[in-house]
Design a protein around this nucleic acid. Structure first.
Length: 270
DNA sequence: ACCTATGTTGATAC
DNA sequence: GGTATCAACATAGG
């Protein structure tokens, strides 16, 4: 689920629906999701407060509070944010739009609600995460993050991405280089830019780097508008035996940067 | 049953 | 420091 576009949708949901509501109770009992906090630590810091802002860099988001403490939220591999039982950002089905909607899975799987803020008006904010790789922490450390992939400027992109011996795909997925690009967004943007995921990042020309930045931004914006990275053109073809939706050539499949990678063997050559 | 896969990240080792 | 690998989690599918 969550890459930059999904996290931004979750942030926008909190921004629109959860700010200014007094927190009356906090369920922080999941010591894995809330690590390294002990049970009750988030509750002690947040009870009685209100969220005053929702911010994001890359895939990391956090809420400011009127108590000064910040609540860090990360969706991990499969997390979503529900406010009053509704989520945002994920596809809701053919023919439907991407507005917040009632998510039946919370009632079907209450045990996947890993962290909860109860509000005085009876509503709630839930970190809903089947896999428990999401996080809820106080005062998250964001110092290791590079600039947001949707905002990074041309010169900074050239300097940060265009170096090193690691494969290009690994470089753009390194959150300390630029923040927000995950596995699917990387495949989609590299495919749009017709660049091989396997070349050394440091071997790119300035023109290629500028093109890649443009495609990362375009892919991100498109995914934001349409409701998620899965709306990309290449994504439906990412399977064994898949073919390029532009030219019909066979897609290559390999592990690059530790993640399963698909690319067009005709258009994205080393 | 057993093996693989999965939209992330972090610790660890060279 | 840069890079590669593995483990953390819990499910789904062949």
């Amino acid at each position: 689920m969550p890459e930059l576009p999904e996290v931004e949708a979750a942030r926008a949901l909190i921004d629109a629906r959860a700010l200014g509501r007094q927190i009356t109770a906090v369920d922080d009992a999941d010591t894995y999701v809330c690590r390294p906090h002990a049970p009750g630590e988030l509750a002690a810091a947040l009870t009685g407060r209100t969220l005053t802002a929702a911010k994001r860099i890359g895939k990391s988001m956090w809420c400011e509070t009127d108590g000064g403490v910040r609540l860090g939220l990360h969706l991990g591999m499969a997390g979503r944010i529900l406010v009053d039982g509704s989520s945002a950002g994920d596809p809701v089905g053919p023919g439907e739009d991407d507005r917040a909607h009632v998510d039946p899975r919370l009632t079907e799987h209450p045990e996947w609600g890993r962290f909860t803020l109860d509000f005085a008006d009876g509503g709630h904010l839930v970190l809903f995460d089947k896999r428990r790789l999401g996080r809820a922490v106080l005062d998250p450390d964001l110092s290791h993050l590079g600039p947001d992939a949707a905002l990074v400027g041309k010169d900074e992109f050239r300097a940060r991405v265009g170096r090193g011996d690691a494969p290009l795909k690994a470089r753009i997925m390194d959150q300390s280089v630029i923040a927000g690009v995950g596995n699917l967004l990387a495949d989609e943007a590299l495919w749009r830019a017709r660049l091989s995921p396997n070349v050394a990042a440091g071997s790119l020309s300035e023109e290629e780097l500028d093109l890649l930045r443009r495609e990362i931004r375009a892919t991100t914006r498109s995914a934001l508008k349409k409701g998620g990275v899965h709306t990309g053109r290449l994504i439906p073809h990412r399977e064994r035996g898949g073919t390029c939706p532009r030219c019909g050539a066979t897609l290559g499949r390999a592990s690059v940067g530790g993640r399963t990678t698909y690319w067009c063997t005709a258009e994205q050559q080393d």
